[in-house]
């Protein structure tokens, strides 16, 4: 399941449905990304821009690559765009595999690729206005470990 949406979603419900629809899995890993505001860097919102047609295609390709590479039974990615508030769910990755190692590694692989190769751009909204989040070199390095 690949979903790019401006609407909120329930990651728990997502995971339970995905698990119920699968057969033969012995392990499921879910990762949920959450909008964070901290005392040293308080934000009022996170605004995500997206290129939906490309995002759906790229996420589906990443999912297919993860399934083949780690022998997953299935994988799902849900990613929001638009204006999100602290505590809101940004995105979720779910992997289903026969055993835990593949499920964990598949989820880590998908997360690392999502950071650098999915066409989303974050802006932090603070009381001073909006500021684009800079791409991080450690995200490139994390993605690089899979190639």
């Amino acid at each position: 399941m690949i979903r790019v949406t401006a609407d909120p979603f329930d990651p728990g419900l997502n995971a339970n449905r995905f698990q119920a629809e699968s057969e033969g899995a012995g392990a499921m890993v879910t990762f949920t990304g959450i909008v964070r505001s901290t005392p040293d860097r308080p934000i009022t919102a996170l605004v995500l821009e997206c290129y939906p047609a490309l995002a759906e295609h790229e996420l589906a390709e990443m999912r297919d690559r993860a399934i083949v590479r780690f022998g997953l039974i299935d994988a799902a990615i849900t990613h929001r765009h638009g204006r999100l508030l602290p505590g809101d769910t940004i995105m979720q990755v779910i992997t289903l595999a026969p055993h835990r190692r593949a499920a964990f590694e598949g989820a880590a692989f998908l997360m690392d690729y999502l950071k650098t190769d999915a066409p989303f751009w974050k802006q932090e909204e603070t009381e001073n206005g909006l500021e684009w989040v800079a791409a991080k070199s450690e995200d490139d390095a994390a993605r690089g470990r899979w190639s």
Partner: peptide, 29 residues
């Protein structure tokens, strides 16, 4: 760079393309 909503290399021909996009470094996830 993308051509018709597919990321492609810079040496890809543009003939017949409907939509090209220039994509700054991505910050999803």
């Amino acid at each position: 760079l993308s051509r018709d909503a597919r990321i492609v290399s810079p040496d890809t021909p543009i003939a017949g393309a409907r939509e090209i996009a220039i994509l700054p470094p991505m910050t999803g996830g």
